[in-house]
């Protein structure tokens, strides 16, 4: 009986678990455009692409930038990023001047006119405010 009770509980819990899975969040990309800041870290997500020249004079497309004024870096001196949003999966590839690429993937867990919350693959979340 105990085993039966145990199985019932497990089965119920499993049912609850299944029935309580939230539908995946799909952020509105329109809300993403603009400059976001968390602490001193600034991201700017542009609507359009621009060409970014590498050290060897080749060019790549980018559509955003990031910078940190705390490190004495201004927006004019910001580093380039290429971002893409696939449902809630936000991929930000930092484009190195030297040609290398440094990708980071995040899950957008919240996105409003003013705030955005990103969660990385290590379950670290960071909330940004739009400026």
């Amino acid at each position: 009986m105990k085993r039966f009770k145990f199985l019932v509980v497990i089965g119920f819990a499993a049912l609850l678990t299944v029935s309580c899975v939230k539908p995946k969040f799909t952020p509105d990309q329109e809300l993403l455009y603009g400059t976001w800041v968390s602490g001193d870290t600034h991201y700017r997500f542009d609507r359009s692409y621009r060409l970014y020249e590498l050290f060897d004079s080749s060019e790549v497309r980018v559509n955003g930038a990031y910078w940190n004024p705390a490190d004495d870096v201004s927006e004019e001196e910001a580093q380039a990023i290429l971002w893409s949003l696939d449902e809630a999966d936000l991929t930000i590839v930092k484009q190195m001047y030297m040609g290398g690429k440094v990708p980071n993937t995040y899950t957008v867990t919240a996105l409003t006119n003013t705030t955005m919350t990103l969660k990385d693959n290590y379950n670290t979340t960071k909330t940004y405010t739009k400026i």
Partner: peptide, 21 residues
């Protein structure tokens, strides 16, 4: 290795700008 960073006047890396692959 591709790595880049901005440095301050003392050649100290500005860590927010450090990128490496």
């Amino acid at each position: 290795l591709a790595a880049e960073t901005y440095l301050n006047a003392y050649y100290k890396p500005k860590m927010s700008t450090l990128l490496g692959a």
